[in-house]
């Protein structure tokens, strides 16, 4: 009986210690889905950037043809 209690206590502490050693990650953001907002913001910026570069590309192509 005593042994069993000891094992339970030891295992409890070991899991506690393990939980403390576990590095903190932004799991909350992932679980409530807010991470998707971050992805959406970054994607919007990326799309905007690429659109801008693409338009410049088109303009230069036009000038090259007129030459």
């Amino acid at each position: 009986m005593n042994k069993l209690i000891l094992i339970v206590i030891v295992s409890f502490f070991s899991t506690l210690a393990f939980a403390q050693a576990e590095p903190q990650m932004a799991d909350v953001m992932r679980s409530n889905g807010k991470i998707y907002d971050v992805v959406a913001v970054c994607l919007t910026i990326l799309v905007g950037l690429f659109l801008y570069v693409f338009i410049i590309d088109r303009k230069i192509s036009k000038i090259e043809k007129n030459k």
Binding site: M25, A26, I35, V39, L43, L46
Partner: peptide
């Protein structure tokens, strides 16, 4: 780059001290 942003934010990464996310 779209792939980078989507997968870079959403996929699992190794859990390391100090570095975290």
């Amino acid at each position: 780059l779209v792939y980078t942003i989507v997968c870079g934010f959403l996929l699992e990464v190794p859990r390391l001290d100090i570095l975290n996310e």
